[in-house]
Design a protein around this nucleic acid. Structure first.
Lengths: 252, 252
DNA sequence: CGTCACATTGATGTCTGTCAAGAATCGTGG
DNA sequence: CCACGATTCTTGACAGACATCAATGTGACG
């Protein structure tokens, strides 16, 4: 394929954004420049803390991170998963200090993007502005789906739905095969995502396993029959807004 | 106070956005111009349907509307409440056709804003772009809080939390007093917001009532002791991002 | 005045939480 | 290399939250 592209083909940020908007070589160069690791974060280490002054924006380069809130007596709700190419706190540019936490789930490498840098993209460059808008709007869309998931599905289908999303989102950024992907969450974490207890997660996983819907091995999720899992939880990927765009072409 | 302001003081869109960004008279005039009723919608009537081509953006001028998704066998999850001054589908500018529905809850008047009009604001005028960003980011923040609410709280606290938000958000746009506000939702709707059954809503309302935490009368919610209700559900309004900005001052 | 949606209450069942106890896994240090 | 503690994972028994089924009452509206 097109050998003139100077930007790494595998850059997850670019791969992701190209699902939403067209990016020319210049755009891609700017994004590739943002996507440079500045530091690392160990599992469970906070990357953004609620209330911290917003000094800039953080971008997941490698690894998986997650948003969470603490409620009442210390119960934790995980609000989203951040994969490579996802912005942690783009909203802080406008909203100021975050109202929730972000922590590393696996060991992560993080890019720190200064405020003014983002500001320039968002409020001056209209094509990249559109790309960043697109990314936050997809995040919001995912959040809506999670809410519907939480409100209307039983715990087993909720977990199946999460697994479907996990598989697909990692495929988008090139981190998964067609039938399997990394699944770095422990059962206590799955519990905090789904709003149930660890014990119940364990029971549900057993059931999904004995049904032959999934297999977990070495922190990887295997889905022998993707269509069966999809049907089980009524997964519809529309909310991820992936207008399929063939890998090769970027219309400048 | 300042008598030179030509834009209606009570314009909910402007009132809301001024919590997030400074708007000069010119900005306010542009927003006031957007905020013109083009049509009405009866209760339960869809304003935006999932999959409809995005022809423009809709803005609630009067009344209350709500987002929802249909899951599986027809179960409905309500994903958000839209009050006067809220955009229904700002995201469609970037994302294209919506992935969920929006319908009127009470009789609404709606402003239809053409695509190119929004496009001009979002991608060319940086101060109003910031204002619209702010609005969608607050929407996203509310969504996160709803998710945490759903995942971690029992149904009675969930409902109390919803009532706290309803009271405060309506105060922001000038639609509520200090201890009471409109509460147009029926019990089946509350059920679809909270992810529980109508029957359970009825029982919880009875309990909150006998506890003296709330009173419902004529589709209005009365909260005799706001602090007690707030403490009951651990409501923290930070997620609404209301940096208090005194009514009188707009720094141009 | 009948209809229909909304609201209320009781009896019963299912999903999920809590409590309790082991077993398996993993990183760490001796 | 093995021992150790600390998580994680698993299973069982029981309890609580919420759903389902059923019946009745209420109010708006044609």
């Amino acid at each position: 394929m097109d050998a003139l592209v100077t930007v790494p083909r595998g850059n997850p940020l670019i791969r992701k954004l190209r699902h939403g908007v067209d990016l020319d070589a210049g755009d891609q160069a700017i994004l590739a420049d943002l996507f440079r690791p500045d530091r690392t974060a160990e599992p469970q280490q906070d990357i953004v803390r609620a209330g911290d002054p917003a000094v800039g924006v953080h971008l997941v380069v490698e690894g998986v991170a997650f948003r969470y809130k603490l409620v009442d007596d210390g119960r934790r709700q995980i609000l989203g998963l951040l994969l490579p190419g996802d912005f942690c706190d783009l909203q802080s540019v406008v909203l100021g200090p975050s109202d929730h936490y972000i922590a590393a789930l696996t060991a992560c490498t993080i890019a720190d993007v200064p405020q003014d840098r983002i500001d320039a993209l968002v409020f001056r460059d209209s094509r990249l502005a559109r790309a960043l808008w697109w990314a936050t709007l997809v995040d919001e869309s995912i959040l809506r789906e999670w809410l519907a998931n939480m409100g209307q599905r039983t715990a087993d289908r909720r977990l199946a739905h999460l697994f479907c999303e996990l598989l697909l989102r990692q495929q988008i950024v090139g981190a998964a095969g067609s039938h399997e992907c990394p699944m770095p969450m422990t059962q206590p974490m799955l519990a905090d995502i789904l709003g149930i207890t660890t014990i119940h997660v364990s029971r549900i996983l057993r059931d999904l396993r004995t049904e032959g819907l999934i297999r977990l091995q070495d922190r990887r999720l295997h889905v022998p029959e993707v269509e069966r899992l999809r049907a089980f939880c009524d997964f519809d990927p529309a909310y991820l807004h992936l207008i399929r765009r063939p890998e090769g072409e970027a219309r400048p």
